[in-house]
Nucleic acid binder design. Structure first.
Lengths: 220, 220
DNA sequence: GACTATAGGTGTACGCTGTACACTTGTCAA
DNA sequence: TTGACAAGTGTACAGCGTACACCTATAGTC
């Protein structure tokens, strides 16, 4: 019976495994993520997982598609700038939730959610009147920026807000050359007080790019 | 004697280890890179490495700084756009050579070459007349774009040029819905013939961003 | 309801990893 | 020549992914 199975916490499905894997990776990071750890999380012996995924690599493929599925699709109804903006903000949010996925989004075998996402973006741009070539360019800049920003945002979190500046200052003090990296020192001094906000930072660059693209579109 | 030592291929230095590590990672990738493999490459027993680096993590820190050291510094003599352009192109080239480094550039403990690099970029922007806040923004967009583009370029290499499109087509054919991803199919059909060139693609987006920044600078 | 095929969970084992710790060896200063 | 110290070695251990053989609970048929 389904009920009994549920109460006995058994009879995993592939979706169960993928979901638990994503949550587990969220908690402990990709470095520490292991098949054995995931199995323990699911109250099951490691080899049980292999009845639902072929191996760790294919598990990762599936996890990435789960992440893609959380990203809001580029809408076909909004004007292109709003649609791209929403999709970019959604992507950043999702990658913030699942930061282990950041370097992997485009390096795994693409799943259905991935294809749907890319298709929607390209469709949005083409319908907005971009030529094929310019649409490809526009897609490329935006995605590079989004993924690159997510990378930076994650890595900033690693250090204290301004530890690079601190490192610079420490090093300078050590070597007795406090002015070896004057501009990093400036960052270390000014950034903490400036109420630096990563969402605002993301939007600043995003809008710069989108407005640049709009100018080109109008010229086509 | 130094000569004898040299002929006997012994007496490693930390620089030897870092250099060999970078080359080895270039060849076999980060996934397959191991302390044992590196030791073998150097004709030495694994534990010998630990006399020169604290552990694998610290070795990686050192490797990343070697990579930073290969990047051309932002020149203080050129106009800011040329300086940023050169530095961006150099960064892309270096990351293409050492693609294992792409996700790691800003996530490791910063070394001296890293600090020098960042200091030079920030200095270039400030001297060009950008306010502190705008310089931070300008830095952020550019780096996000550069790192994100490097990521994409690496991942494209993983698949055949258009395997995403192929995947889309395969999937569509399987499900009997060839028009499920029409825009991906368009990519698969048109891209191969269009003489797609990743350097050109990189410059397209880079110039879009730099020109956008110049417009803002003139307004400040 | 009993019977059986099979999907799903288990246990054991192997080769790989990073690295702790105790050791030997080679090289330079005195 | 000696003696100290840096550099290289050997052994060992816990943790990893996963192959393979095994057992078991469930679902579909009679």
């Amino acid at each position: 019976m389904e009920r009994r199975a549920a109460t006995k916490r058994k009879r995993l499905s592939r979706a169960d495994v993928l979901g638990a894997a994503v949550s587990h990776a969220d908690e402990i990071g990709l470095e520490a993520f292991s098949m054995r750890g995931l199995a323990q999380e699911l109250g099951v012996v490691p080899m049980a997982l292999y009845k639902h995924v072929a191996n760790k690599d294919e598990l990762l493929d599936g996890m990435i598609d789960v992440v893609f599925d959380e990203i809001e699709l580029a809408s076909a109804d909004l004007d292109w700038r709003s649609a791209m903006r929403r999709r970019a903000l959604s992507t950043r949010e999702v990658l913030k939730r699942h930061s282990w996925a950041i370097g992997l989004m485009e390096s795994r075998h693409p799943g259905p959610a991935n294809l749907r996402n890319h298709n929607a973006v390209m469709g949005c741009l083409r319908k907005a009147g971009f030529s094929f070539e310019t649409a490809i360019h526009a897609y490329s800049v935006q995605d590079a920026y989004i993924y690159g920003f997510a990378l930076q945002e994650r890595d900033l979190g690693f250090e204290t807000p301004d530890s690079a500046g601190d490192a610079a200052r420490r090093r300078s003090e050590t070597t007795g050359l406090l002015d070896e990296y004057p501009y990093l020192v400036e960052i270390a001094e000014k950034l903490p007080d400036s109420g630096y906000d990563t969402l605002g930072e993301f939007e600043w660059g995003l809008d710069l790019i989108i407005e640049g693209l709009e100018r080109l579109r109008l010229r086509e």
